[in-house]
Design a protein around this nucleic acid. Sequence first.
RNA 1: CGGAGUGUAGCGCAGCCUGGUUAGCGCACCUGGUUUGGGACCAGGGGGUCGAAGGUUCGAAUCCUUUCACUCCGACCA
Length: 557
Amino acid sequence: MRFSKTFLPTTKEAPKDAVLPSHIYLVRAGFVSQIGSGIYNFLPLGKIVLDRIRAIVKEELDKAGCQETQLGFVTPLSLWDESGRSAKFGSELLRFKDRKNNDFVLSPTNEEAMVDLVRNRLTSYKQLPQNLYQINTKFRDEARPRYGLLRGREFLMKDGYSFHESYEDLDREYDLMQKTYSKILDRLGLDFRVVEADSGAIGGSGSREFMVLADNGEDDIVVCGSCEYGANIEAAKRVKKEYQHKVLELKEIHTPESKTIDELAEFFSLPKTQFVKAVAKKAIYEDKDEVVIFFIRGSEELQETKACSFVGAIELIDADESELENPGFIGLDIAGVRKVVDIELKDEENLITGANKQDYHLQGYSLKGKEFEYADLVTVREGDKCVSCGGELSITKGIEVGHIFKLGDRYSKALDATFLDRNGKRVPYIMGTYGIGVSRLVAVVVEQSHDEKGIIWTKNSSPFEVVVIISDIKKDDQRDFGEKLYEDLKAKGVRVALDDRGERFGFKMSDFELIGIPKAVIVGKKLKDGEVQIVKRATLEKIDVKTDEVMQRVLEL
RNA sequence: CGGAGUGUAGCGCAGCCUGGUUAGCGCACCUGGUUUGGGACCAGGGGGUCGAAGGUUCGAAUCCUUUCACUCCGACCA
């Protein structure tokens, strides 16, 4: 590619609203441009990068035996009604009508469409397993798009769906997909962790996210310093914490004005860990709602996603005080309402909890042998201990670029998609679903690999391996040498670009640093002495090279 | 969805509060010249429905109303 003939609008100034490096540089370097809120155009260079990443995804998936398909971007709303998800997705699902007044949606994901494609076609266990995928545009009408390509409304995603006759076979495919996804991210040169994720709301037995470590990530992830354990904060586990508490006689204590844990800890002069915090939430289900009280240790924070998954609600909202009796004094013995108790409180003694009576708390409370719904409810903290090795956990930021999920029969059942098993019995497919955000990966690479001058593409994500920069296009010797080197490199199969624009040297160097191609050959002043320079983008180190060695040096670097 | 902002040339901004010639500035762009290893300099030039609609006024980028778009903080995000 010759830059002199390329649509490559680089700018000195960043878009005023861009905050993240990936957003700023991708726009400044002429890779993408915004056309609407959360909607981006890919310019020639951006399209090359997007296609390269797409190609790597496809290559690894095909190697793993997956088959590429392409589903319609527009799907009939009726399919979403059939699975029950049109309500669940809410206004994130962009709906519209055609001229005949039929309802359609822009696909935000394609479980329904893929199940519809195979049902009545994969009718025997002999035809299973199958893993079908597509790399296609998705649209989610996000309430608040932001961060450039990282959270757009329209984006390119690979979504795959596997169909199995048994859970054992699903497990095998799930592991294979984890390996395959890891290979893809490795090839892109990304620093990532595979973490346990919440899988409650949608059901199913397992869910893992692929998190690229980045300061600007939107997700908090818990990682172990001593082993491979990692989990989204929403699903992270820890070793139970033990405490030695002062023995307390069982009795009601008058505690006026003391409602919060802080106030109580001061009132009793006891550690917060000895108290039981009651967190009242209203759980919203598809067909009803109810108040649920979650009880956790006073020193802990409720992890809402865990709580929500456990009760199987669509979402939890704060309960209104008017819906509660004795707010501030709610205790474990409250009646007439659903209660869930944190598993770390099981069999604990000498606790202080509300007395379910205005201005009173109950001390010396024991949970020994008491029947409650117990569940893991608390948020893991920095410094907690790892469940798999006992090591110290720390919290870091990540960007989710992939998600694999054991779906089970949720969609196949809802859509009545079945096959005949070995016993001639009609059963629903056992399914897995696997996604990678392809356009998001473009931004993620930049997020993880840039400096104050611009992008530093990794080897396999870069639009080109090398750019030949002709310092002064008006000098015949420089132009001739640069052109020949460019043609020779192309002939060797190197992905090479030629910066033959009539700009000054400094301009072209700044663009090189901004655009981020891993290396450049500068054909300039030193050509008279039989030398050119090779520059590495990552270090900006310049190496003088004899003109007759440059081919070889470029190839080996 | 709650809160807060911003819309003036391709991009970044000033002007608006306190209405009044022909709406400015920097970058970018075009022409000519001089430069040529770190985003050059000189001279000349082109480009605007001031987001849109309505209103007040002799007169509106400026005041009022409505509306659209975009952004930020939060909530949300299989």
